[in-house]
Design a protein around this nucleic acid. Structure first.
Lengths: 99, 99
DNA sequence: CGTATAATTCTATTATTCTCGAAATATGGA
DNA sequence: TCCATATTTCGAGAATAATAGAATTATACG
């Protein structure tokens, strides 16, 4: 995982709406949620949500599959773990810390 | 740690110069580094660096102390750990993951 | 095929962030 | 006190991000 991927993931999560979307998807588990339901639960207009989802998708933090007319988004836990791994390794000291 | 603090920390780190500054400070340990030396090592103009350092400071990720004419910045590991803790707890599934 | 539903892409507007030159503040030493 | 050093704050310009209305694509079903 390169630094630019880390920055992409961090900026994807460093925004109120997107962090809430991601947290919601985390609670939804691997079943995921259709875009419309995310929009409704979080009171975000569909086009704005779509903008945020594409950010999360580009950062590799969510994946999407189609089910009929719905697009189901779900959290990509592996990616998130990789980001946390990077931060733990590179941003958390060789002093007495973080283990 | 509240969500707005997490967002502050994430956006502080979600920027190339600031991530490099923070990583440099992490390697410097508790001794820290004076602003001028950070600017020199990373080839960032002093005023721009100051802008970035204040971001990191507002996010609680670095602290500063004065030593003569120099201001010594150092990484706040505890804060970083708290951020990682939050992300692990809230953004990392109750599925088989992240442990 | 025609219509309805689900979501995205397009376009424009506003807001925020980044960068850097210039000016200001704080400290130390002659 | 006067000057040099270290760093920050101010002010302005350029770049990037967020929001939402309108138009478009994709699927389902009568």
């Amino acid at each position: 995982m390169e630094e630019k991927d880390i920055i992409a993931a961090l900026s994807a999560l460093a925004q109120d709406s997107r962090l809430r979307v991601f947290r919601l998807l985390v609670t939804a588990g691997s079943a995921g949620l259709p875009a419309g339901q995310i929009a409704e639960e979080l009171a975000i207009t569909p086009n704005t949500l779509s903008f945020h989802l594409s950010h999360l998708k580009n950062a590799g933090l969510v994946v999407v599959r189609r089910d009929g007319r719905s697009l189901i988004y779900s959290a990509e836990y592996g990616r998130m773990r990789a980001v946390l791994g990077y931060l733990t390794e590179n941003c958390c000291s060789r002093d007495p810390c973080c283990s």
